[in-house]
Structure formats: C-alpha cells, structure tokens
Design a protein around this nucleic acid. Structure first.
Length: 441
RNA sequence: GGGGGCGUGGUGUAGCCUGGCUAAACACACCUGCCUGUCACGCAGGAGACCGCGGGUUCAAAUCCCGUCGCUCCCGCCA
C-alpha cells in the first residue's frame, strides 16, 4: 500500500487507497470540513477530511499546518466532478507532516506576484517550486537528451575534458585564475583545445556537454560567468559548410523531439510555439549582413564595422524571419580580425575565416568554424595575432603528427533554452546562476 | 568597463516630482475568531516597516541634496 501515487495518476486509482506526497499549496480549514491542495512535480491534488470525533488528530494537524509544508497523505481516491483538480480528490485516512514550513515564507511559490530577482536568487529552491520553473528544467532535460541521442547515433564519442588548465586557453583576459598547489591555474573557458586534441587522437567525432567559465564582467540578461557549454568537433570536413550542415540537422532533430514531448506545455505555460526548423537554414555572409543592417537603419560604431553588434544580430534575425520565414540564420565569413587564430581562412581570401555564428531569433547561440590543422599556418596565424606561443605550445603540437582537417562549434544550453521559451532572463533557465555579483547559493 | 533605473512590514507595490494634511497606505501572506464542500473560499478583528546605510538642507524629510552600499537594465564582451 505505501507505494506513492503521483497526483497526475489519481484518476486511474478511483475507489482505491493511495499515498500522495507533496507540498501544501493551500489550506482551507472550515468548520465542518478541511481541504488541502497538495502539489507534487506532476500537478495538484485536493485532499479532504470532515471534522469528526474519530479524526480529531487529523483535524488538529491540519489546523496547525502551514503552506508549503512537505506532507504524506494516505487516503481513498473518490470521483467528484465538482473538484477543480481533475474531478477527483483524496479522502484523508492519515496525514503525516514530514517537514513543517515556517509560516512566514520569504518567497511564496504560489503567490500572485513575482518577487524581485534578488529574492528569487536568494530563495532559489522556493522559486523553483513554481511549476513553470520545473517545466523549464524538464524541457532542458529533453533538449540535452535529444542532442546527445543525435550525436551518439551519428557516431560521436562523448568527451569529458578537464576544467583546470595550466595555461589560459586563448587570449587570457576572460579567464579565471586560481591557485593550484602554489602555482597559477585557470578555469577552462571552453573545451576548444581538448576537443581538437581528440581529432588528433583519431576519435573522428566528439561532443561534450559541460561547464565553461568566463571571467567577463558582463551585465546583460544573456550572460553568466559559468554555464553549460554544448561543444562538438568532427574530422575530415571539407569546409565549415559541413559543420553547419550537421548543426542544423542536429537542431532540427532536437526541436522535433522537444516539440513532441513539451510542445503543448510550452504553449500553455510560456505562450510559445516550438517550431521545428526547415533545413538548410538561411546563410548570410558578413558582407551581406552589414548591408542588411545598414538598410534597416542601424549604424554600428566605427571601430567594429567588421562585426555585428547585438542590435545588428537582432536585425539579421528579423531579416531571416521576414525573407525566409525562418527563426535561424547563419552569419558566415567573419573577417580575420574578429576571430581567433585557430579559425581557418578562405584559400581565395585570407582576410576572411571559414567560420560562422548561428543566430536564433536574432540572438547568438553558437559559434563554429573549420579549424586550421596545418602546423605552420597555425603558428603563423598565432604570431600574427601577437600571441605568446609558449603557453599554447602543447596545443600547437597536436598538428605535428598527423591531424585530419576538422571543424566544430560551441553553443550555450541556457541561452538556447531562454530563446526557445522566450524567457526574459538567462538566469531563469539556469538552475543556479553565476554572475559577476552572484556566487551563492 | 561606460550609461540609466530601483532600494518602503514576510512578499509585491503606493506615497517621493508639488517636504508637514499619513503616529506611512493597499494587496497577498501571517495570527485570532466565525463559516455545512471549499477550490484566487468568504466574513470580522489583529500583529507587523520609522521608509538600504551615512551625512547635509530645513522649524519639519520616506519625500530635496551629497556620498556610500546593494540590486537591476542597456551598451560593450560573448554561448
């Protein structure tokens, strides 16, 4: 008997005794009868008990109960069309208070208004009790699952690369430094070098879903200092086009799966329609992107006229939506000066890289490229960027003993979730947000 | 890093511009009592903030000024 029944399954247990477990969302304690609304991760259920001599203990417990307490209820499921929680209710036989909640909640998960961001962050576990919060992470699980499924089906190997590094992977300004047994170490801001090392190792195709760290003091709704990176790298590509072609099919599959599982829930809770994108996605070379942006009346600051700023990206997103009816757009052919040294350059035009960004509804969600796999060219490009070769020598060595041509991309999980569900802020799509001013809980 | 906004009981806000008329108001939550099935339950009563912090102006400041701390948004950086 003490097998737990989820609230969503009560209808299948009419007339039988069940145990439900969850949080007290509401207490309606009346003279003759007492109602509890109990929430678990699958929904709401009403539990009811009449005030009577034989149930004085239960009646008393309920009189002293508080909202958001954790309870276990045993009782019989009865059908009652009047009841708004699914037309069924549980007639309480016994009630156990597993954890009584303090009556003064710092954050009310079923309250009429949303608390301030700071209150939400400080009491994140109460904030996460809101069903819409739960749904975000159920959808995140489905996304990750579908992505991993597609990768594995395509012959990829899953990688877990180290996050502690002896030298900053590239550049250096945006890397966290920490003390490592008396010498400096750095938190990986990308698995870039290691996934390329797997190419040199002959793994052919790899992916990694793991934490990445960025020491940028960014204050926007779409940045954090620690997030889950989605990275992949594939060997024997002819160009970055092969990578883009993979990525768009991977995304189409993922959204297909997520829509099938959560399309209705996403519509009801967030008012968003999950669209399974057509492939190929629209492609917009940087030169054309600049024209589109200019035509739409936006002028980027002179010093970054080779790149797209956030507004520019939004406008290219609008363009893709209007011209192609598409939520996604690849921006390709970024100039050398706005790309890292390891991006391969076009053989016909060395000022342009074989790289791309992927925009979703005008928000940058991924960056990719074909990598430079020729040792001497790579060294030349690193020098050109003014890099100190010594700390990256281990990386450069990958390309001295037979490394296949390869390419890949990196994307951000929370950022994709934010765009998918049209959330106002990345932190809603992050279990525990880390930012320049947020390091706890 | 640059710019804007905000900071009032447990929570969300009003009041601030046009200082005193409010011993700081409203909603939700909380406490007490009442209520024959409630379902945003209802009704009656009650407790709870000296208005982020520090300084200044003034007869008088939550309200004006300066500083400071915190949060937040935009830009930049990027996923």
């Amino acid at each position: 008997m003490p097998t737990r029944t989820l609230t969503k399954d009560l209808r299948a247990h009419i007339g039988r005794e069940v145990r439900i477990q969850g949080w007290v969302r509401a207490i309606r304690d009346q003279k003759r009868i007492q109602f509890l609304i109990v929430r678990d991760h699958t929904g709401l259920a009403q539990a009811v008990v009449e005030r009577a001599e034989g149930r004085a203990d239960i009646n008393q417990t309920i009189a002293a109960l508080t909202r958001e307490s954790a309870v276990t209820i045993d009782g019989v499921v009865v059908e009652n069309a009047v009841v708004k929680t699914g037309g069924v209710e549980v007639q309480i036989r016994s009630l156990r208070v597993d954890n009584l909640a303090d009556p003064l909640l710092p954050l009310d998960p079923s309250g009429p208004t949303e608390p301030n961001p700071e209150v939400q962050a400080n009491w994140r576990y109460l904030d996460l009790r809101r069903p819409e919060s739960l749904l975000i992470f159920q959808i995140q699980t489905a996304i990750e699952h579908a992505m991993r499924e597609y990768w594995i089906r395509e012959g990829f190997i899953e990688l877990h690369s180290p996050k502690l590094m002896g030298s900053p992977s590239e550049g250096g300004a945006e890397v966290f430094e920490l003390e490592y047994f008396g010498r400096p170490a750095y938190l990986a801001q990308s698995p870039q070098f290691y996934k390329q090392m797997a190419m040199a190792a002959g793994f052919d195709r790899v992916f990694e879903i793991g934490p990445v760290f960025r020491a940028d003091p960014s204050f926007t709704t779409r940045h954090s200092t620690e997030f889950t990176g989605l990275d992949m790298e594939m060997s024997w590509v002819e160009s970055h086009e092969d990578v883009m072609a993979f990525e768009e099919r991977w995304l189409r599959y993922t959204l297909e799966r997520v829509k099938a599982q959560f399309g209705d829930a996403a519509r009801e809770t967030f008012g968003v329609e999950i669209v399974v994108p057509e492939v190929p996605f629209p492609r917009v070379p940087m030169g054309q992107a600049q024209e589109i942006v200019a035509r739409r009346g936006h002028t980027a600051p002179a010093e970054r006229k080779h790149d797209l700023d956030a507004t520019g990206e939004r406008l290219v997103g609008e363009y893709a939506a209007e011209e192609f009816g598409h939520e996604f757009a690849y921006v390709t052919d970024y100039p050398v000066d706005v790309r890292p040294f390891y991006h391969m350059r076009h053989p016909s035009n060395s000022a342009i890289t074989k790289s791309f960004d992927l925009l979703w509804r005008g928000v940058e969600i991924a960056t990719g490229a074909q990598r430079e796999h020729r040792y001497d060219v790579l060294v030349r490009q690193a020098k050109e960027k003014g890099l100190n070769l010594e700390p990256i020598q281990f990386y450069l060595e990958f390309f001295k003993y037979g490394c296949p041509p390869h390419g890949g991309f990196g994307a951000g999980l929370a950022r994709m979730l934010m765009v998918l569900l049209k959330l106002a802020n990345l932190r809603e799509a992050t279990f525990l947000f880390r930012g320049p001013t947020r390091l706890s809980p």
